[in-house]
Every structure is written in structure tokens, then in C-alpha cells.
């Protein structure tokens, strides 16, 4: 915490004078996905200079894009079968937004705007089995709901703390299952009409490391070698097991 405040005060001093500009930083720029990865936290902190009219501060985290498929089960001959689907292209695999403002009307408006920008706009290019507008909307709302359930969409779950009307900090929690890639932290201030006054952004790189990287990379790119290696490993382990237990029996 002490380090944080030293950093923040340094940031304020170095930033000079601006029109409600944002100075911000994050505590990590790289996250390694290991076999034991159990989620992570990113601390976003900074300061607002020259604040006037008490602007709303919003911090977003947008994950790398992923294709997503929503499938709907229906009863066919007495069996529940995944029949209809909607395939969405390039949807953020993770999205979180936090704000200083707690007024629910305003929140709702921001939420609608952001969901429109990041998710609803993808509906146009989505490949669906049904072309009806009602069905498409249903798939869209399921996309949001299921991602929320997986903690991949988190809307206004924690409030951003503001100290002395200037300093702010907020933590972003990443769940255990996240996709590797670039995560963008966007810090912006909004006016009364929710228009962006100022914004700054930071990049967090999330990458697989160690055995995770080795196995997933080779399974995808050197599948022949990977296949041979997996068979060799199985034979080696089977052979070792037979030898070890034969020795133990004596």
C-alpha cells in the first residue's frame, strides 16, 4: 500500500496540470498461465488531476477476442439434443467494468452502451440457425447470461475507491479459466451525459508458460510429433510400471 501511494504521488507530481486528465498505472503487465494458475488480480491505480463537476470514473478490462457458440437443446424423439445454434465471431472473452458512480439509472445506461458496443454489435455477423429477430435476441441474452455465470462478464461488482477526491484504485479479479492474449485496461472519465471526457489505457499480456505452453503449442502445431510423443510416453510409463512392480514382488 505504501508503495502504491508513493507511486501515485509521484504520478501526480510528474503529470503537471491538465483538464481533468487521468494518470494511471497497473501493478502487473504480464500474467503467466501455469498449470497451477488459480486466477489473478490486477491493481489499477492513479489520480485525476484538475477534477471539476465530480466526473464519473470508469475502469474496464477487455479480454482477447474469441469465437463463441451458443447451442440450444430441444427434444427430438424423446431425447434432448443440441439442435439450434448461434455462432458469434470475435467476442471479448472477458469483460469487466467498475465505476465510482452508484446511481442505478446511470449504471444501466453505461451497461447498455457497453454491451451494445462489445457484444450486441456481434449479432449482425453471427451465424444462426434461425433468422428470426426474436430468436437472435434470445441467443444474445444467453451469451451475456452464460458469460456472467462463468465470471467472464462482470458489471459493476465493486466500487472504485476515491481518496481525497483525486486518488483512485480498483482491483480487477481474473477467474481461473482465462484465455491467453492481450487484456486492455481502459480508464476513462465520463461527464453527466456519460460521454467520455478523457481516457487512458494499459495492456496486460496473459500468456501460457511452462508445460501449459509446451503441450498446447505442440498439440496444435506439431500434432504428428505430439502424437508420437504421447504414445512413446504411454509405452515408457507402462514398461516402467511393469519393471517397478516386478522388482517390488521379489
Amino acid at each position: 500500500m505504501i508503495r502504491l501511494f508513493v507511486l501515485v504521488s509521484f504520478l501526480i507530481m510528474s503529470s503537471g496540470i491538465g483538464f481533468c486528465s487521468i494518470v494511471s498505472n497497473i501493478d502487473k503487465r504480464e500474467i503467466e498461465l501455469t498449470t497451477r494458475f488459480d486466477g489473478s488480480k490486477i491493481l489499477v491505480f492513479g489520480a485525476l488531476t484538475e477534477t471539476n463537476n465530480d466526473p464519473t470514473l470508469v475502469i474496464e478490462l477487455v479480454g482477447p477476442k474469441q469465437d463463441m457458440t451458443i447451442r440450444k437443446k430441444s427434444k427430438v424423439w424423446g431425447i434432448w439434443v443440441k439442435k439450434d445454434y448461434a455462432k458469434f465471431k470475435k467476442v471479448p472473452s472477458f469483460y469487466q467494468i467498475n465505476s465510482t458512480n452508484l446511481i442505478s439509472d446511470k449504471r444501466q445506461e453505461i451497461t447498455n452502451r457497453k454491451l451494445e458496443k462489445y457484444f450486441f454489435s456481434k449479432l449482425k455477423n453471427a451465424e444462426t440457425t434461425s433468422q428470426k429477430k426474436v430468436d437472435k435476441k434470445e441467443y444474445f441474452s444467453e451469451l451475456i447470461r452464460l458469460n456472467k455465470e462463468k465470471n467472464n462478464i462482470r458489471l459493476f461488482e465493486t466500487k472504485i475507491s476515491i481518496l481525497q477526491e483525486k486518488l483512485f484504485f480498483s482491483t480487477i479479479e481474473l477467474p481461473q479459466k482465462i484465455f491467453p492474449g492481450e487484456y486492455k485496461v481502459i480508464i476513462s472519465t465520463l461527464d453527466e451525459n456519460n460521454e467520455v471526457i478523457n481516457s487512458s489505457s494499459e495492456i496486460v499480456k496473459v500468456s501460457k508458460t511452462g508445460i501449459q505452453k509446451f503441450l498446447s503449442f505442440n498439440a496444435a502445431n506439431n500434432s504428428t510429433l505430439y502424437g508420437i510423443f504421447s504414445v512413446m510416453l504411454a509405452l515408457f510409463l507402462g514398461f516402467s510400471a511393469a519393471q517397478i512392480f516386478r522388482l517390488l514382488k521379489i
Binding site: T224, S230, L233, L237, G238
Partner: peptide, 27 residues
């Protein structure tokens, strides 16, 4: 052996870490 090789190349679905754990437990 042939099947897991084929799945590894055609479907890319052999998880070596999972296989390793299962082999140890199974033995």
C-alpha cells in the same frame, strides 16, 4: 496407440497431462 496417435493428429484432443495423471493412478 494408433487411436491416440490418430486423435492427436486429426482432432488434437490428447491431453498429455491428463493422460500422465491417469496412467500413474491406474498403474
Amino acid at each position: 496407440a494408433f487411436t491416440s496417435f490418430m486423435h492427436a493428429t486429426q482432432n488434437k484432443t490428447v491431453d498429455l497431462l491428463l493422460a500422465f495423471i491417469l496412467i500413474i493412478g491406474g498403474v
